[in-house]
Design a protein around this nucleic acid. Sequence first.
DNA 1: AGCTGTCCCTGCCAGC
DNA 2: TGCTGGCAGGGACAGC
Length: 305
Amino acid sequence: VPELPEVETVRRGLNQFTLQQEILRGDVLLDRTIASPTSAIEFLTGLKGSKIIQWHRRGKYLLAALGKGAAGQANNGASEQNNLHPSSFILHPSPPGGWLGVHLRMTGQLLWLDCNTPLQKHARVRLFFPGNLELRYVDQRTFGRMWWVPPGQAPESVVTGLQKMGPEPFSDEFSVEYLVEKLRDRRRPIKTALLDQELVAGVGNIYADESLFLSRINPETLCSQLSREQIDRLRLALIQVLNSSIAVGGTTFSTFLNVHGVNGNYRGEALVYARAGEACQVCATPIQRLKLAGRSAHFCPQCQV
DNA sequence: AGCTGTCCCTGCCAGC
DNA sequence: TGCTGGCAGGGACAGC
């Protein structure tokens, strides 16, 4: 369930608390959480002694640029400003300690806590910092993954999911022209297209459904049938709904927690997601649910044409 | 090449 | 009460 706003919320928390601190050692409790390198030992060896320079986000991926010893020098508020909705972490050519990549998938949580906090049942990876502080990765369904990218290697060469990642929704690249071009000849439903990370980065089921409702587009509408006006409405609705959710710290749904283990507040604002059978807040028609490419879609059959 | 289905995994909950 | 099956879904991959 963590989508762009949730991952962004976690990123901001991590940038607030984990920077310029050395990773003293770590512990991998579930081997398959580590996607690369192949062994947990190599992963931990690669991270040991590095400092976190800055956390970036690309789609739903988190990427920490790592510094070695004195090399990872201070970052001030200015660079964080430029970094609010980063679309290009590649700007960091090659951090001295490489990169730490994290994908939360369905149930992953990155928690910043005292290392004496009792181990959660689903704790998977622990990274230890000075002062008894710990970055702990907890993941009930074990879909989440972590990567260590050695210095000198491009993140996308190791974190392969980054290779075909589409534009960030807040970037200039995500323009009406771009979308019109990308959707013109496609035959699949727009709801399905929104979940495709190659079209746009970071959108999942919640914000796909919400943005379609806000732009009054039926989720089954084929991409090629959308007018330019509808496409622009959808683009603006998506940006708006993502921004609103970031503003309240992400969703309340499911197992999403920020770095302090606290829920977001977006739940109450969702208009259609997980509200099948409830009255549409615009026209009171019952919200319907259907399956598209294996995913549930929630929509108002009256408002969304 | 575009698109869909399947799988991974655990916990929850409705239905019997 | 205890079981079963469906559901939640991001992304990798197979297959049409």
